[in-house]
Simulated assay, not measured.
Amino acid sequence: MSKGLRVFCFQLKQELVQVRVLILFMILAVFIYSYLEPVANLAQAVGEKVSPWAFPHLMNDYICQMVFMVSAVFLFSTAPFEGKAHYYIIQRSGSLSWQLGNVLYILASSFLFVGFIWILSVISLLSQTKFSGDWGIIWGTLARTNAGNQYDVPFTVFAYIVGVLSPVETTAISFLLEWACVSWMGLVVYLFNYITKKMTGILAASFFVFLDVMIYNSWTPKAYLFSPVTLAQLKAMSGNSLSYGVSLKYAVVFFTVTITVFIVICLGQGTKKVKKWGRKNE
């Protein structure tokens, strides 16, 4: 376990400071700011402050989800993260610890990735923000009127979310679902790339990124049950979607089971390598 933690720390330092990652975060920052700027303009125009609960609304916008998930795939595109020190670390720590460290890195960097989005969603509205434990007038207005169209707000604020759930509860659930979804994508990229020794993981994860849109346009809605991007959105857990079995409980079970299976497969790959190395050394 300790060796796995050391591999995790090494990967965290090595991967997250790469120029491509820093540029990715800069692009995301610009995107989030520009996406939320109309909300700030609305708040300024009506003379009301906006509460800092933009995050769950971004998570329920399909364009935002595509941008965030494509970014997540790009973040993990270098999987299985075999840099110059790879063989040295394998010899020192063993393949199982290497796999464990990479799994921890994917989970931790996914958390940081979603945390970055949440922080940016707060900072982007800071000039017009009033910290409050409720949704406030602005989000309520956007949910119940066409003010969003008048001020070119590029996303929909769903009345179901504002009317039924508290902002703290919604933000917490949205954060955890998004973390699970990003981790899911990262593990898919990692597993496919590692097993095939090619960049097939990017293709596999990209398929699931756009699966939500494909289902909406032409596929059966029952396929939403297998779309991680759909299951990361609270808006999908109301209305007609309930008749297809899409619910928060199902989403939790889906992510828990599939991520656990992915992790077991990853560690299993490490065990196979350990056995092979052991036979060579005998």
Rank of each mutant, 00 (worst) to 15 (best):
Y216G: 14
Y216R: 10
Y216C: 13
Y216H: 11
N217Y: 15
N217G: 11
N217A: 12
W219L: 15
W219K: 09
T220E: 14
P221E: 04
K222M: 13
K222R: 13
K222Y: 14
K222P: 04
A223K: 05
Y224V: 03
Y224A: 04
Y224C: 05
F226Q: 04
S227E: 02
S227Y: 05
S227L: 09
S227F: 08
S227I: 02
P228W: 10
P228G: 05
V229K: 03
T230A: 07
L231F: 01
A232K: 01
Q233R: 13
Q233D: 02
Q233W: 07
L234K: 06
L234S: 07
K235D: 12
K235L: 11
M237G: 06
M237C: 10
S238P: 13
S238V: 13
S238R: 11
G239E: 06
G239M: 05
G239W: 04
N240L: 14
N240V: 13
S241M: 13
L242I: 03
L242Y: 01
L242S: 04
L242H: 05
L242P: 02
S243F: 08
S243Y: 06
G245R: 00
V246W: 00
V246H: 01
S247F: 01
L248G: 14
L248H: 05
K249Q: 12
Y250Q: 01
Y250A: 02
A251R: 05
V252F: 10
V252S: 07
V252Y: 04
